[in-house]
Nucleic acid binder design. Structure first.
Lengths: 199, 199
DNA sequence: CCCACTATTGAGTCATATTCAACTAGGATG
DNA sequence: CATCCTAGTTGAATATGACTCAATAGTGGG
């Protein structure tokens, strides 16, 4: 009964987009190594072979999916050049938190799951964090970043991830209160970093 | 020619310990799914079959290894009940940072790698973070923890992980300066959390 | 010295990732 | 309108690696 009709012939870029879109949905609900390639292919309505035609290995497929998810996150939180300093930061942070609330499973997979075991997936997480840090530095107009400041900003990104996950898990905290704490901690972390350089 | 001599008969607890010890070393240099079971068995000087006798699945093996690594980390950073408040915290934090410096690869695998894809491994990371947070709350004598404070402490644990990784990656920051910033950020994060509750 | 208990073994089995030579849809060409 | 040809699609065949299990062999106790 499972005799599928031959898949419609699609333009490679469309097919690729379709597969990544499907991957985003699957990555949200199940870990990669729990999903056989056959299942992915079946869900996409194509043959195993075609999946391998587009992505040489299963790993390549998931790397492409993770990359897309990261791209999307960064796009949604793109800083608004119209705004300055804390305003710009506030807007991005709010967008970040809202994105996470709307894409809970995917976000968790990206921050926690995707980072796992695989070097290339780790690199994607790493680059995403680095880009977030870079944006903060730029938004605040910091120049000639001292190592202590860089480390502090980087740590703050970790603070954001953990507080957001905690907020998501417990949902007993007001969104705006979360944002307020996140922003204040950035300021304080920078003060502490700068202060420590002067000792 | 790789005809191994039969492995010495060991007491189960010793054999288990030996395998986990080996796993700790392997987890430091290579991701689990890149290491075939055969290789693990060979490195341990035992047969494939015996490995499966001790750990029903490869996954179970790595879960046991990760659990041991987490246990070790928590043991090394065990708070000193003789000390109070920031002193106790300072001692644990220093032990944490030093442990990380001495076990770089393993730490990275635990914080980043181990968390990946697998539910049970994620739970281990999760519990380890939760325990760290619990200790902070206890060290500072906080009672009846308000959600905002819990979230802040949790976020701080993330701050610690990220700053420590950054410190490790770049090694351009003085250890004591790192510690100073980490401690100050905790204080500030708590102030921000408490402050936000009063608005 | 022999027995019983249990650690150890390795040749199979099985599930999945990956390969590849053959198969068509459908537009271009005449 | 027939034919060709390019490029997307297929699935049977293969490779790899996790896992099973019936047989083997140290070891400690009687």
């Amino acid at each position: 009964m499972a005799t599928r009709t031959r898949a419609a012939r699609l333009d490679p870029s469309e097919r690729r987009a379709q597969l990544i879109e499907l991957g985003l949905r699957m990555l949200s609900s199940e870990s990669p190594d729990r999903v056989p390639v056959d299942e992915i292919a079946e869900a996409a309505g194509i043959s195993r072979g075609l999946l391998f035609h587009y992505f040489p290995t299963k790993r390549d497929f998931y790397v492409a999916v993770a990359r897309e998810a990261a791209r999307h996150l960064l796009e949604v939180t793109e800083p608004d050049p119209e705004l300055h300093h804390m305003d710009r930061l506030h807007a991005s942070l709010a967008a970040y938190v809202d994105y996470v609330a709307d894409n809970e499973a995917l976000y968790i997979a990206l921050v926690r799951g995707a980072a796992g075991s695989d070097k290339e997936l780790q690199a994607i997480s790493e680059e995403t964090r680095a880009e977030s840090a870079r944006r903060v530095v730029e938004a605040l107009g910091l120049v000639d970043v001292d190592p202590g400041v860089r480390t502090a900003v980087r740590g703050w990104v970790g603070f954001i991830e953990e507080t957001t996950l905690d907020w998501l898990r417990n949902r007993d905290l007001d969104r705006d209160r979360l944002l307020a704490v996140q922003e204040q901690v950035l300021v304080h972390a920078l003060e502490a970093a700068v202060g420590s350089a002067l000792v």
